[in-house]
């Protein structure tokens, strides 16, 4: 869910709120200018705000919500979204992934970013990648995303729409049983949450 400007106001300091007001004004300008904005090596003002959100907001969670709101407001084109992700810090990449449901990208433009995030070993990025936008993943990629969560210790609760999509998914159930068997054979614990997901796959099958 998008955190609104009004909601953010209540958790930021006076100084951070003043900064946010002008940052959102810059993002508004960028959305209005569209392709007529600064070109070449000039960095758009809203992108400077996007980069500085952590130190300007203080609270890391609020900073992430601010970054998502800035993306939503500036509505960057697909190439710029891809660049902001590819050349982003860990925090910036997570913000781009979290903002995907609110950006005018086609699945062909958005899915590669989710797929890249799922290839990472940063559990925070993986958790962001299985948010609401992951609904566009095909069945094979989605099952592997669920398995990767369990494998890397991301709680399955992070997977948006898990209960609906896992329902009666026999192939996901097989993958989970095989994974549990491998862990058991190695004398290692089966991850918390696997049994829950496995039970979902058995329902309605």
């Amino acid at each position: 869910m998008l955190t609104t400007h009004e909601e953010l106001r209540t958790c930021l300091s006076t100084k951070a709120n003043a900064w946010l007001d002008s940052a959102l004004a810059d993002a508004d300008d960028a959305a209005r200018q569209g392709p007529n904005g600064p070109s070449g090596r000039d960095i758009p003002r809203w992108e400077l705000r996007f980069a500085a959100a952590g130190r300007e907001c203080g609270d890391p969670q609020a900073a992430q919500a601010v970054r998502v709101l800035l993306l939503h407001t500036a509505r960057p084109n697909p190439a710029d979204v891809a660049r902001l992700y590819a050349r982003g810090t860990g925090d910036e990449r997570r913000a781009v992934v979290a903002a995907l449901p609110y950006l005018p990208l086609t699945p062909a433009e958005g899915v590669p970013l989710i797929e890249d995030a799922l290839r990472s070993n940063d559990v925070r990025l993986i958790a962001a990648a299985v948010g609401p936008y992951a609904a566009v993943l095909d069945a094979h990629a989605w099952r592997h995303a669920v398995l990767k969560c369990l494998f890397t210790g991301v709680p399955p609760a992070a997977v948006a729409g898990l209960a609906d999509r896992a329902l009666g998914d026999a192939e996901l159930g097989r993958m989970l049983r095989d994974f549990a068997a491998e862990r058991t054979a190695a004398g290692r614990p089966v991850p918390d949450g696997l049994t829950h997901v496995l039970a979902l796959t058995a329902k309605g099958a």
Binding site: G88, T89, G90, S120, D122, R124
Partner: peptide
């Protein structure tokens, strides 16, 4: 260099 910078800002802090 950019890949290296990205690593210093993403993977290593993690």
């Amino acid at each position: 260099f950019l890949d290296y910078f990205d690593s210093l800002l993403g993977w290593e802090p993690f």
